[in-house]
């Protein structure tokens, strides 16, 4: 990470709806130093009386000049996410700092196979890795397992379908936990619940695993992998929860 972290001003240049409860927000941040896939930013909102609240959000896209793209899930009663999803408009300015985190990241120089396991909005930093791989022509095999409640809650659905078809070496597998659309390869259920081979990744496999999602999801996936004999040193995790609001 170059230099000390400091708050910068970002201006919203585009907003698009990802699902009914989430939006992708594109910021222009003058002087942005660039970032790695998997890193995040802190956003800070300050009220007129000086009260401020900050939250951490994963960056959804690969490095792109001074552009920073986030996808934000509305957390019911969340004091920051409700503002970002419901009230933010193109042209608005926000304080942010980053890029943050040098652990939950993937670089194109890393050639070993990668397993990405996403729960809900935990897909965001993992999607940044998939996009970075495509941007840089990365050759590391990627297996992407994405758990969502239903098809309506899948982020980046069209792009994922396209990448699953077009990106060499990328396998995408959607796991629906509540309702699976017609034609799904498995019935609705949690990862490993109905199909122990959901992850398609064998103990002893060489490579790295990234797991991101709500705390309970990450603990369940990691617990399952450790029970099956996976090496904990190959697994990197990021947990978030409703406290993120």
């Amino acid at each position: 990470m170059a230099g000390r972290l400091r708050w910068q001003t970002g201006r919203v240049v585009a907003i698009r709806e990802e699902t009914p409860s989430s939006k992708t927000i594109l910021f222009d941040v003058p002087g942005w130093p660039g970032h790695l896939a998997g890193q995040h930013v802190d956003l800070r909102l300050t009220a007129e009386d000086g009260y401020s609240a900050e939250r951490s959000y994963s960056i959804a896209g690969p490095v792109d000049g001074e552009r920073v793209e986030l996808t934000v899930q509305r957390v019911p009663n969340g004091e920051v996410s409700t503002y970002l999803v419901d009230d933010l408009r193109v042209g608005d300015e926000l304080e942010l700092r980053g890029p943050i985190g040098g652990w939950f990241v993937w670089r194109v120089e890393e050639l070993l196979p990668v397993l990405l396991v996403a729960g809900g909005s935990g897909v965001v930093p993992l999607m940044a890795m998939v996009r970075e791989r495509a941007r840089t022509g990365g050759v590391a095999p990627f297996t992407f397992v994405y758990s969502a409640r239903s098809a309506a809650e899948v982020y980046y659905a069209d792009e994922l379908a396209g990448r699953a078809r077009d990106d060499d070496g990328l396998t995408v597998s959607l796991v629906y936990t509540r309702s699976a659309p017609a034609g799904s390869h498995r019935p609705a259920g949690r990862i490993g619940q109905s199909d122990p081979d959901d992850l398609g990744w064998k103990p002893g496999a060489e490579g790295r695993v990234y797991v991101c999602g709500p705390t309970g999801f990450v603990e369940a996936v990691v617990g399952m992998m450790l029970d099956r004999g996976h090496d904990p040193s190959t697994i990197r995790t990021e947990r978030f929860g409703p406290t993120g609001g």
């Binding site: 951490s56 309970g216 990450v218």
Partner: peptide
């Protein structure tokens, strides 16, 4: 967020910025 995924905590990733 359902109760089964809310274990009351997140992990250090959420506060890297504050400590950094």
């Amino acid at each position: 967020m359902s109760a089964d995924t809310d274990m009351g905590y997140v992990d250090g990733n959420a506060v890297i910025g504050a400590f950094t």
